[in-house]
């Protein structure tokens, strides 16, 4: 037996992988397939489903009532990604340019907020942003800078701020990794050839950091599009995203097939957006 195992590494591999693979097949892949199947079934009376084929759920996703939320979620996710990139790139650059002895400490300082519970970080912003009792409005009004509270809460602004805050570290980290690996001599060469610092950045630094930018953008975009906690807490019940509509189908409306259809479409949309983004960055990489 052991002799046969030694001669067949493939058999060995499957022996080692059997338990984790079976576990994931049952508790991850099967649920994924079931959600797919559920999207094409009719809703049952008290939650659950009737085993009757229908395309109604998929059609309803594109009903303006829900599709509007889809478009808004995309808009929020894209703005979040852009803002995080604009804020994150210089921060990554700052860490990469600081003395090597300090870099690891700065990376840690960056990751500590990220390791803090997401729910708590969102709650922290709730206490700052709330309209009448939030710290920002209360302080500004006490100082007499404003006389009416600013609309900081219960809107897209609050959600985007919460998401940017939550995901900024995962944008910075891959960009920093790319910048840190950047060969300094390339920049010297560019300078020797009389490139201005702006030009050296555009033609050398930026293209070489692009893989980090792509990775960071995906790490921010995907969870932002599927956000549930941030809009639930900072959206003030008025501003919702697709994640909240999905959860409502399971917690409130008891329309499981429709909830399944919504999350299927969301995942497919994510996949398509990711592919388009990769294609697009590939192209711009070729141009520069």
């Amino acid at each position: 037996m052991t002799e046969r195992l030694r001669r067949h590494p493939e058999l060995q591999a499957w022996l080692i992988l059997a338990i984790p693979v079976i576990f994931l097949l049952i508790f991850f892949m099967a649920p994924l397939v079931i959600v797919f199947v559920y999207s094409f079934l009719e809703r049952g009376k008290y939650g659950g489903v009737e085993w009757v084929f229908t395309l109604d759920n998929i059609r309803r996703v594109f009903d303006p009532l829900y599709f509007k939320t889809f478009v808004r979620s995309f808009y929020i996710a894209i703005v979040t990604t852009l803002v995080t990139l604009i804020l994150g790139y210089p921060l990554a650059y700052f860490i990469a340019k600081s003395p090597p002895s300090r870099r690891n400490a700065l990376v840690f300082a960056l990751m500590i907020p990220f390791w803090t519970n997401f729910l708590i970080r969102t709650y922290a912003w709730l206490t700052l942003l709330r309209t009448h009792t939030g710290l920002i409005n209360v302080t500004l009004m006490n100082w007499g800078i404003i006389d009416k509270p600013l609309p900081l809460y219960g809107n897209d602004f609050a959600i985007i701020l919460g998401l940017v805050y939550g995901w900024l570290p995962v944008m910075v980290l891959p960009i920093y990794a790319a910048l840190e690996r950047l060969d300094e001599s390339l920049l010297e060469a560019a300078r020797d050839l009389y490139a201005s610092s702006a030009k050296a950045f555009r033609r050398v630094t930026w293209p070489l950091s692009l893989p980090g930018v792509v990775a960071g953008s995906m790490l921010v975009f995907i969870p932002s599009l599927g956000a549930f906690v941030t809009p639930a807490i900072l959206g003030g019940g008025k501003s919702l995203m697709i994640g909240n509509i999905i959860s409502n189908q399971f917690l409130g409306a008891h329309d499981w097939p429709f909830g399944s259809a919504l999350s299927m479409v969301m995942m497919i949309a994510m996949l398509i957006a990711t592919l388009i983004y990769f294609r697009w960055t590939k192209k711009s990489e070729d141009v520069t």
Binding site: W14, P31, V35, I222, S260, M266, M270
Partner: peptide, 29 residues
């Protein structure tokens, strides 16, 4: 081994998939 790419991607999926999607998948299951 044969099928490694498929097994590989299966192990990455739970990391990539939004937690709300994973949550309702498991709820239904």
């Amino acid at each position: 081994f044969r099928g490694k790419t498929a097994v590989d991607s299966m192990f990455y999926l739970p990391v990539i998939i939004p937690d709300i999607a994973m949550a309702i998948m498991l709820l239904i299951f």
